[in-house]
Design a binder for these strands. Structure first.
Lengths: 242, 242
DNA sequence: ATGTTTTATTGATATATGTCAATCCAGCTA
DNA sequence: TAGCTGGATTGACATATATCAATAAAACAT
C-alpha cells in the first residue's frame, strides 16, 4: 500500500528538447513528429521523478492525470485482482511511454506500475497530451499506434497464458526476456522467482520446477539471477507445442 | 478454413448518412464528430455485406484493409492459437465497430471475427479512416478512446480468466451475457455450449458441470439455450471469490 | 563472525481441470 | 415412422497445477 504521491522535482538537467532526445530510438518515439513549439509546450512543466526498486510508480484505480516516460530502469505493469492476486502483464524499460492502461477512459488507471530496478522517469500532464492530440493529427496517429501495439502485445501474451501448459509459458517468458527485454544471452534478470512466476500466472514453486526441468534437459543454464539460453530452438518447439 | 473474400454488394438502401444513422446510440458512435463532407467521403465506397451464422467475417493473419461496422446480428472475436485452440475474447453486436485488433500495426489482423447469428455489416476502406484521422483530430481522439476501451475490456476479461477458478469465470460470463450483451433476464444465447466454454477458456464438459452446479444451487435456471439468472447476488459473490 | 530475515528449492500431498468414452436428446432426412 | 446426425450431458479416470511444510541458501543487520 504505497501512496501515489511522490516527492517530485523539476527536471533540472534537461530543459529543452529533453523528451525528444530521451526517446530517439526505434518507433516508440511518438514525440518525433512534434514541432519545436509543441515540444516546448509539452515539456514546460514536466517533472522528473526518481523511484527506488519496489516503489509504486502508478497505482491501479487512481486517477490518471499524467503520462509517464521511462528514461532509465526496469518496471513492471501489474493487473491486480481480488485478494493478493497479481499478474505481471509486461515489463517496460528505457524509452517506454506509459499511460497506465487508460488515459482516455474515465481517467482511471487500469494497471499498477512498479519499479523493478531504480527508475528515472518524467511525468507529463495528460492535459498536454489531449491538447496535442487535437492539434497535431500526426501525433494522434502515432499515439494511436503506440497504444494499440502495447495492448495487442499484452493481449497476445495473455492468450498464450490461457492456452498453454506451464512449460510453454516458461519457454515464452525466457525467449521474451532474452529477445525483447535484455537483448543479450546470458542475461541478469533483476526479477525474483516470484515475479517471474507472476509473469506466467503460475506459482513460484511450479515455476522453479519447470526451470529445473529445462536445466537438467540442458536447454538453459541458471545461476541465481543469471540465465543463459543454450538451446533456443528447443524453447521455440516447447512454446509452440504449448 | 473459410476464404476471406466474400461476395460484396454495394449498400443500396442507405446512400447518404447511413453510417451516422446506423450508429446513433451511446458513445460507440465515433462518426458523430464528422462533418457532412467527411461522412460522405467515408461512406462513398463502403460495401454492405451479409453473413450467415458461422461464416468468417475477418480472418486472423490476413491483411487489414477494411474496418467493419456491425449493423445487425451477433459475432464473436476469436484469438486462434496453435492447433485447434480458440479463445473467444468478446462478443460484438449491433452498432459495434471492428478493427480486427490492429489496423495501425503492420496492417495485419490479430483476431478472427466470426458470425454467430446472421450478421449485416459495412466494410469501410482503412485508407479512409487514416485520412480522417489526419484531418479531423476530434475523430482521431474518439477512435483512440474506442480502441482503448475495447482493448482494456478484453484485457480485464483475460486477467479474470487467468486469476479465477472455473465457477468464478462462469459467473462472470453469465453476468456479462445478461448485463452487457443481451440486456434482458431470461435471455436466449444463440451460443453453443462449446462457444460458451471457449469464452471462459475451459472445456465444454467442465462448463456444463459448473452450469449444473449453479442450477442445483438454485442460482440459475437453464433450459437449452434459454438462461435465467435467479440469484444475481450469488453470482457476484462467486465472481469475487474467484 | 553471528544471528536474523528474506528468498530459493525440494518433497509429499491435495485439488482443479482435462480427457476419453458412453449415453441421451433434438432436429433433420429419407 | 425410422434412422441418422450433431450437440448436450454424464461418469470414470488421468494429469496439470496448487498448496503446505520443511529445508537450504543467500542477503542483511548487528
Amino acid at each position: 500500500m504505497e501512496s501515489n504521491k511522490r516527492v517530485e522535482e523539476v527536471c533540472a538537467k534537461c530543459t529543452d528538447s529533453c523528451c525528444s532526445k530521451c526517446f530517439n530510438v526505434g518507433d516508440e518515439n511518438i514525440f518525433n513528429c512534434l514541432t519545436e513549439d509543441e515540444l516546448k509546450m509539452l515539456i514546460a512543466e514536466k517533472r522528473h521523478v526518481h523511484f527506488k526498486a519496489g516503489e509504486t510508480i502508478l497505482k491501479q484505480n487512481t486517477s490518471a492525470s499524467h503520462v509517464v516516460c521511462i528514461k532509465n530502469g526496469l518496471a513492471k505493469i501489474i493487473a491486480e485482482g481480488e485478494g493478493d492476486k497479481k499478474l505481471i502483464l509486461r515489463l517496460v524499460t528505457t524509452h517506454s511511454i506509459l499511460t497506465g492502461g487508460g488515459i482516455f477512459i474515465n481517467e482511471i488507471r487500469h494497471f499498477t506500475v512498479q519499479a523493478v530496478t531504480e527508475v528515472d522517469c518524467c511525468f507529463i500532464d495528460s492535459e498536454k497530451i489531449f491538447e496535442l492530440v487535437s492539434k497535431n493529427s500526426l501525433f494522434a496517429f502515432e499515439l494511436l499506434k503506440l497504444n494499440n501495439r502495447q495492448n495487442i502485445e499484452m493481449l497476445n501474451n495473455l492468450v498464450g497464458i490461457t492456452q498453454k501448459y506451464m512449460p510453454g509459458r516458461v519457454a515464452d517468458l525466457l525467449l521474451h526476456l532474452k529477445n525483447q527485454i535484455f537483448n543479450s544471452n546470458p542475461f541478469e534478470t533483476n526479477l525474483s522467482r516470484h515475479e517471474l512466476a507472476d509473469m506466467t500466472s503460475m506459482t513460484m514453486e511450479s515455476f522453479i520446477r519447470i526451470l529445473k526441468e529445462f536445466k537438467s534437459a540442458g536447454i538453459i543454464a541458471v545461476e541465481g539471477s543469471n540465465m543463459h539460453i543454450i538451446d533456443e530452438e528447443a524453447l521455440v518447439v516447447i512454446s509452440r507445442k504449448g
